[in-house]
Amino acid sequence: PKDEAKKKVKEAIKRGDEETAKRIAKKYNLDWDDAKREADEER
């Protein structure tokens, strides 16, 4: 599900692992900028 994928993307971003985050986002066709902004807001 997309929500689960987005959570994984945000967790990867918070760990500083943007490569993984981008790969997950691409795989699930998520909006990378959107997920990154959300992760930054939660930090």
Rank of each mutant, 00 (worst) to 15 (best):
E19K: 09
E19D: 10
K26D: 14
E11W: 00
W32C: 06
G16A: 03
D40I: 10
K22F: 02
Y28W: 04
V9W: 05
K2D: 11
R43S: 13
K2Q: 13
K36P: 03
A35Q: 06
A25L: 02
A5F: 09
E41L: 13
R43F: 14
E41W: 10
K14Y: 11
D34R: 05
K27E: 15
E42N: 07
E18M: 15
R23L: 07
E4W: 14
D34L: 10
D34A: 13
K7S: 09
V9D: 00
K27Y: 11
A25C: 14
D40V: 08
I13G: 00
I13Y: 06
I24C: 08
T20P: 01
K7W: 07
E18I: 15
A5G: 09
E38L: 08
D33G: 05
I24H: 01
N29D: 14
N29H: 11
K22G: 01
T20N: 07
L30I: 15
K27S: 07
R43G: 13
A21Y: 00
R15L: 09
D17G: 00
K10L: 15
K2S: 12
R15E: 06
E42I: 06
T20S: 08
K14R: 13
D33Q: 09
L30M: 06
R37T: 06
K2H: 12
K8V: 08
E19A: 10
R37I: 06
D31F: 02
A35I: 15
A25H: 01
E42K: 05
A12E: 03
K8G: 04
A21G: 04
E11Q: 07
R23C: 14
E42R: 05
K7N: 11
R15G: 05
D31E: 06
D34N: 10
D40W: 11
I24T: 02
A12Q: 02
D40P: 04
G16V: 01
K10P: 01
E42Y: 05
L30A: 03
E42A: 07
E38T: 06
K2R: 13
I24S: 01
N29F: 07
A21V: 00
W32V: 04
D34I: 10
E4A: 11
I13W: 04
K36F: 10
A39V: 13
E38N: 05
K8M: 13
I13K: 01
E19P: 04
E4G: 07
E11R: 04
I13C: 04
D17P: 00
A5C: 06
A21S: 05
D31Q: 03
A25M: 02
I24K: 00
E11L: 04
K8A: 13
K6G: 04
D33L: 09
W32A: 01
I13E: 01
Y28T: 13
L30V: 15
R43T: 13
E42V: 07
R23E: 12
P1H: 13
D3R: 09
E4D: 12
A39R: 03
E42M: 07
K2W: 13
K7Y: 07
D33P: 04
A5M: 10
A39T: 07
V9N: 00
E38M: 07
N29E: 12
A39S: 08
K27V: 06
E42W: 04
G16W: 02
I13F: 04
A35V: 15
A39W: 09
D40R: 08
R37K: 12
K10Q: 12
D3F: 12
K7P: 01
K14E: 11
A35Y: 08
E4V: 09
P1K: 13
A39C: 08
E11F: 00
E38Y: 04
T20A: 12
K6E: 05
K2E: 13
A21H: 00
Y28D: 15
E4K: 08
D33V: 07
E18Q: 07
D31M: 02
I24N: 01
E41P: 06
Y28S: 15
A39L: 10
A35K: 02
W32F: 14
E42C: 12
K27F: 11
D40H: 10
D31T: 03
A35S: 07
D33H: 05
D17L: 05
A21Q: 00
D31Y: 02
A21L: 01
E4C: 13
D33T: 08
K8W: 12
D40F: 12
P1G: 14
E18S: 06
I24Q: 01
K27M: 14
D3K: 09
D17Q: 04
K22E: 04
A12K: 02
E19N: 06
E38Q: 07
D17N: 04
Y28Q: 12
K7V: 10
E4H: 10
K10A: 09
